[in-house]
Design a protein around this nucleic acid. Structure first.
Lengths: 109, 109
DNA sequence: CATCATACCCAGAACTTCTAGGCACAGGAA
DNA sequence: TTCCTGTGCCTAGAAGTTCTGGGTATGATG
């Protein structure tokens, strides 16, 4: 069951940054990794992924350089910056707090 | 600390429906109730609230009729419909599932 | 050599929420 | 009375993210 798309709103950046916190990856691999680790519950559209990567690069959270993928194809490798790591930490805390608040309202105690 | 605004995306409808599941209320009271029960963590802007109420009325999840508030002012009272209750149930399940998936990625196990 | 999976990209649409206002009125204070 | 505050509803436009639905290119495989 794919995740509700709207609920991704605002968490996509953090999910990508978290993926990169395990090591540099190219965009396609980020999407694959997220799909695998969530058992296909999370499906990132490429039309969302690439704009998000550009956005975060502009903000200085990630850096990119052209390289080669595991399958020997040209690929843009993205790497988490120090600033990005700090942002991820902050966003993670926000998620923990916010989701707890929403759950406290929605879910039975 | 007010909740991250983007994270509200997609949950606002469910939060409002949940509020109405405790009984009919007018818009202003919905916002007050959510603020109170979350200790001001959740602040619903009126510019988000009223459009959301209209949206959900169009979709048949709630019904509205003019009445009088507790403080003797003219107020539009919103009531959850059967359809809305079913939608709330579905959205709640989606939230439980989706937030668990996101948490499983973001938060340390 | 045809096909598939990999890998990147974009324009425009769709949608939600926020900003920043406005209007109206009840009740109490000055 | 007049003023002010809190209550209560509403809207237009902006801002922002994600999705839809395309497109390009290339290595590997049959």
């Amino acid at each position: 069951m794919p995740i509700s798309t709207e609920l991704l709103h605002g968490t996509l950046d953090a999910l990508i940054l978290k993926t990169l916190s395990w090591g540099p990856r190219h965009g396609y691999a980020i999407a694959r990794w997220l799909e695998e680790t969530t058992g296909d519950a999370l499906q990132i559209e490429e039309g969302s992924l690439y704009p998000a990567l550009y956005r975060m690069e502009r903000k200085g959270w990630i850096e990119a350089e052209w390289g080669v993928s595991e399958s020997n194809r040209k690929a843009k490798i993205h790497r988490l910056t120090r600033k990005g790591r700090a942002h991820l930490k902050a966003e993670t805390a926000r998620w923990a707090h916010s989701s707890a608040v929403v759950s406290s309202v929605l879910l039975p105690t």
